[in-house]
Each structure stands twice: as C-alpha cells, then as structure tokens.
Computed example of a mutant assay.
Amino acid sequence: MTDNNIDGKVVIITGASSGIGESTAKLLASRGAKVVLGARRDDKLQQVVSDITNDGGHAIAHALDVAVQADNDAIVRLALETYGRLDAIFLNAGLMPSSPISALKTDEWHRMVDVNITGVLNGVAAVLPTFIEQKSGHVLATSSVAGLKAYPNGAVYGGTKWFVREFMEVLRMESAMEGTNIRTATLYPAAINTELLDTITDPGAAEGMQALYEQYGIAPERIAEVVAFALNLPADTTVNEFTVGPANQPW
C-alpha cells in the first residue's frame, strides 16, 4: 500500500505536544500530510511545528484545552482557514492518574472525565458539521487496553476509555447508516513510553505502573505507524479498531 492517501490530507491532532501525538504528527508530515496540532503546552507545540517545518513538512499549532468546546471549534476553524479543507482528526489527548478507588482522588476522577470523555465529545462536535457537509472525514481516537478489560487502579481511567470505545463504534455505525462516509478508527494501546505516567500521584499505582512500563514499554512511533496505516486506507474501507502493544506484554 502506498502513501498516496496520506499526501495532502489535513489532519488535526490533539495531545500533540509529546508522545503519541508528537510522533504521529512528525510521521504524517513526513508523508505529505498537513498537520494542525493542539495541546495545552504551547511552547512544546511550537517546537514540534519547528521540527516539522525544518524537515520540509507543513504544520501549524493552536493552544488547546480539549475540555473547552470553544478551543476545539477554534482549531477546526484554523485548519479550514489555513489549508482550505479538513480530512481527519486524531483525538489523542488523555490523562491516566491511576489510583485505587478507596484513595478517593475525586479531583483526578473528574479531570479524567473532562479530558478523556468531554475532550472526545468536544472534538467530534467541532469537526462533525464539516465532515457531514462534505460527506467525508476520518475520526481517530486513542482509547487503551484499559478500554477493553478491567484493571485494578484503573476504574475511572478505564471507564473513560470504555466510553471512547462505545462512542466511536456508534459514530461509525450511524455515519454508515446516514451515508456521510465518516470513518472511524479506535486505538487500544498497551504499554507505550509516553508522559502518561507523569500524571499518577498515588505512590503504589505509580510504582507498579513504572515497573510495568520499564519491563515492556515500546516507542510511541509504533502507534504513529498504526495511525498512518488507518489514514492510508482507501476511502471505501475502514478498520475501526486496533489493539496495539509490546509483543512481549501479556496485557
């Protein structure tokens, strides 16, 4: 399969300042995509844009809190105003402050819901009018293997990722029924070496997760390749789910 279906596409990527988002942005840009990058850390975003443009790619960035609908609307407008079209959005922003329920870290629970659930809803709400009008578009989202099975310390995080699974699947089905040709791809990564562990404040959960990732973790570029594969598929084909992780991890 060639890269012809990526070349020239305009793709919004959230959570693009590091990890999977940054790796995906750089890979897609290297294959001819025009990437529109969003995250809260504008300084890191601008560095990613600089890296891409210095390599001859096309990239712009917009400071973005996915939990704020207006921010999502603004990055869609930026993509359309700058590049004149929008082909895909990769909803990748996420938090994973794992902890046992009994620790009652309720502030972290609500922040996970804000970013991992509301952020996905806001991103879809921002792009859907454009995708429906043009009768094409691709929505990709990062769930987790914790969105496929339950794990101790992951009740709320896993719950948010189960939501992504359900929402994306219904979006795919309804789009097919409505004839809008909107495709979806939900990714379920296992241990991928990103900054995700930095948000864990519970000492026991942090220690256990750190040991797990040190043993099994693989590079975020592996997930970027899967995103590129999904975006490169012909317009009449969708692969709606990808479970991806280290070959030696028994997730």
Rank of each mutant, 00 (worst) to 15 (best):
119 G>S: 07
190 A>V: 01
109 W>I: 07
171 L>C: 08
174 E>F: 02
149 K>F: 01
198 D>P: 08
80 L>C: 13
50 S>F: 05
167 F>E: 11
10 V>D: 01
154 G>D: 15
230 A>S: 14
155 A>T: 15
31 R>S: 02
147 G>E: 05
201 T>H: 04
152 P>D: 04
79 A>E: 09
248 N>E: 06
249 Q>A: 13
63 A>V: 10
59 A>D: 00
11 V>R: 07
48 V>L: 08
53 T>L: 01
137 G>W: 11
61 A>W: 00
223 I>Q: 04
197 L>E: 11
250 P>N: 12
70 A>T: 11
2 T>H: 12
196 L>S: 14
170 V>W: 11
140 L>G: 05
101 I>N: 03
49 V>Q: 05
31 R>L: 09
219 A>P: 03
3 D>I: 02
19 G>K: 11
5 N>W: 02
128 L>P: 07
226 V>S: 02
173 M>C: 05
161 K>R: 13
80 L>D: 01
244 V>I: 15
168 M>T: 10
76 V>N: 03
210 Q>K: 14
106 T>G: 00
152 P>M: 01
130 T>V: 15
247 A>W: 04
169 E>F: 12
158 G>E: 07
17 S>G: 05
220 P>S: 09
132 I>R: 15
236 D>Q: 05
103 A>I: 09
42 D>N: 14
244 V>L: 14
214 E>K: 15
203 P>S: 06
40 R>I: 09
40 R>H: 03
144 S>V: 06
213 Y>R: 14
101 I>P: 00
134 Q>L: 04
115 V>A: 02
176 A>G: 06
212 L>N: 13
195 E>Y: 06
178 E>G: 09
162 W>H: 14
21 G>V: 01
187 L>E: 00
65 D>N: 15
227 V>P: 01
16 A>T: 08
119 G>F: 06
251 W>G: 06
234 P>E: 05
180 T>F: 12
35 V>C: 04
6 I>G: 02
43 D>I: 03
187 L>T: 01
120 V>I: 15
199 T>W: 10
243 T>W: 00
75 I>C: 08
122 N>R: 03
230 A>R: 07
95 L>V: 13
121 L>H: 13
238 T>D: 13
76 V>W: 06
92 N>W: 10
90 F>V: 10
179 G>L: 08
29 A>T: 00
121 L>Y: 13
96 M>N: 15
120 V>D: 06
200 I>S: 08
98 S>M: 12
4 N>I: 11
141 A>Q: 02
35 V>A: 02
48 V>Y: 06
167 F>D: 10
150 A>K: 02
183 R>P: 08
92 N>K: 11
136 S>F: 04
159 G>I: 12
171 L>T: 10
43 D>V: 12
169 E>C: 09
158 G>A: 11
